[in-house]
Amino acid sequence: MSTAVNGSEATEQLAHGFRDQAAAIVDEVGKLIVGQREIVRDTVVCLIAGGNVLIEGVPGLGKTELVRALGRAIDLRFSRIQFTPDLMPADITGTNVVVDGTDGQRTFRFEPGPVFANLVLADEINRATPKTQAALLEAMQERQVSVAREVHVLDPPFFVMATQNPIEMEGTYPLPEAQVDRFMFKLVVDYPTAGELSEILERTTGAAQPGVAQVATGDDLLAMGAFARRLAIAPHVASYVVDLVKSTHPQDPTAHQLTRQYVRYGCSPRAAQAMVLAAKVYAMLDGRYNVGFDDIRAAARPAMRHRLLLNFEAEADAVPADHILDAILMSTRQAGD
């Protein structure tokens, strides 16, 4: 019993440390990013949960700056890849180059690409061709790169934070479904409010530029992620996640009416995993040791919006995925209803 109490107290200490460190990261990033508190929080949640983030928004809203700030607040090897239509896969993963040996022989040596980092910023990812975009698939899911039949393991932690412009813009290639599914969250950055815009002007056009201090390391992130996974989720809360995901499947008997009308393919199991993991981090940040329905609901839209493949009718009617998800969240019953 005594051991158990001691173990519980240690766990409690870890929980307090978790909350303090997460709050410090959010605060540091907040020094550089004006407003967008929810985007910053969700990005940090993804980092802690070990997921990749896709950030969408029109140019100039601070997407890249957000990722750069995160890279500075956390002691991580940071690399940035600017995706362009002529970018090749080898430009991302790296390639074998011929080098002259001291003995006069020439050998192939693997030259790692920018993907060999802890935090990779894939800027404007949808401006590259699908072939190049797919170069990130293996790295994002399996944390490794295969080049010339040789597997190169990426050092943990490894995060891909991609930004993309709305797909309706000129010169963009929609991400393939398989790759989209590998992003834990898709966050949509909106225009700042008038107040936030004034604050941005004040901060960025003056002589002094705000700095971001390093408040965590990659190991801290890994420890926080491991701790969050220990959190309790009750069966009825997990069941709610299942119901939400099933409601997005058009062929399922429990599917929502809007799902049947507008959705071609529903969410994969990765959506459920993403929701539960993110909900656990939300609960930790809130000072709880269990996942609640509200945590699930907070994670539902960023975890599912990019995993809903809408049909032509939805495009014709201009029905966004968020609208369908809102309806699903409204109608799905939770235990105790």
């Binding site: 766990t11 409690e12 220990r230 959190l231 309790a232 989720i233 009750a234 040791y289």
Partner: peptide, 11 residues
């Protein structure tokens, strides 16, 4: 839940 003993106790 399926959480470990310490976490369950804490919860």
């Amino acid at each position: 839940s399926r959480a470990d003993d310490h976490m369950r106790d804490l919860q």
